[in-house]
């Protein structure tokens, strides 16, 4: 008997809450923001968490010429030979269906065919297994009952996430892979504990405009950004807004500068 989608959503949120802050990436966080590699470590740890919560996951392994667009990779693309993620049997109107828990690719549980379809190979090989299979394609690592190998893999890819976050590209996500949504005036990045001011000019002074900022670099645990707004009347018709943003953390933070025109 499958679980409800609501329960699947709760379990997704449970594992997703372990997302690593890119620059600090301390154990036991899960480096979802490094999609390039390490999926089998992430999947085994997610299964451990799900089982500790009282539910029984399985795993789905996919092989093929896999190419996935990702804004968490500076090239905007990840290329894999295989990939793995936990699954849960979810009760739907058409019977129990496998849903995949993969915060590296999605923001919620998705049907298995959706997860497979996004990976770019029209004819991949899909292999379901139980949660006990740590690595399906390398026999010495088939099992990891003590999670020692899992912790080694997670440690390796936490380090990779840190190294990438410290590079010139900064932490994920990468602006070259993103488009500015409606109401987003600019993308910015702040160094740890830094304060910086941006300005945006040419706004009609008759408009009532409200400015906010939103971090795009996930880092749960505390406030990341604060901001203040000042205004300058540049001419009879136009104004300039000055937005001062402060990074409240010891990590680099990327963010959106947002506006809303209220009248």
């Amino acid at each position: 008997m499958g679980i409800s989608f609501q329960r699947a959503r709760e379990l997704f949120d449970l594992v997703n809450s372990k997302v690593c802050c890119p620059s600090s990436a301390n154990a036991p966080c899960i480096p979802f923001l490094y999609p390039d590699d390490g999926c089998w470590g992430r999947a085994h740890e997610m299964c451990r968490l799900i089982m500790a919560a009282g539910d029984l996951p399985r795993k789905i392994w996919i092989q093929g010429n896999l190419r996935v667009a990702s804004s968490n990779q500076p090239t905007c693309l990840v290329q894999w030979s295989w990939h793995v993620a936990p699954t849960l049997q979810v009760s739907t109107w058409s019977g129990d269906q496998p849903y995949v828990i993969d915060p590296a690719l999605f923001q919620e549980p998705v049907p298995q065919h959706v997860w497979a379809g996004i990976q770019g190979d029209p004819a991949p090989t899909l292999t379901p297994t139980g949660p006990e299979i740590f690595h399906l394609f390398y026999a010495p690592d088939t099992y990891d009952p003590t999670y020692a190998k899992t912790n080694t893999v997670l440690n390796t890819y936490r380090n990779e996430l840190k190294l990438r976050a410290a590079s010139g590209d900064g932490p994920p996500p990468y602006f070259s892979c993103m488009s500015r949504g409606r109401g987003v005036q600019w993308f910015g990045m702040l160094e740890p504990n830094a304060t910086r001011r941006w300005f945006t000019w040419g706004w009609p002074a008759s408009w009532h405009v409200f400015w906010t900022v939103m971090p795009v670099t996930p880092c749960p645990g505390g406030p990341q950004l604060a901001w203040r707004v000042a205004a300058e009347r540049a001419s009879a018709s136009d104004c300039t807004y000055w937005v001062t943003v402060t990074n409240l953390t010891g990590d680099r933070v990327k963010f959106e500068g947002r506006y809303n025109v209220l009248n």
């Binding site: 997703n16 809450s17 939103m214 880092c219 645990g221």
Partner: peptide, 30 residues
């Protein structure tokens, strides 16, 4: 896009009662 503001419920005319600052944390992708 969410904005936050406060409204005192305790009348105390003559001077401002409350000031506030807002900070934000991205908990996860969503």
């Amino acid at each position: 896009h969410v904005v936050w503001y406060l409204m005192p419920r305790t009348p105390r005319p003559g001077a401002p009662e409350l000031d506030w600052d807002v900070a934000v944390e991205r908990a996860n992708a969503a």
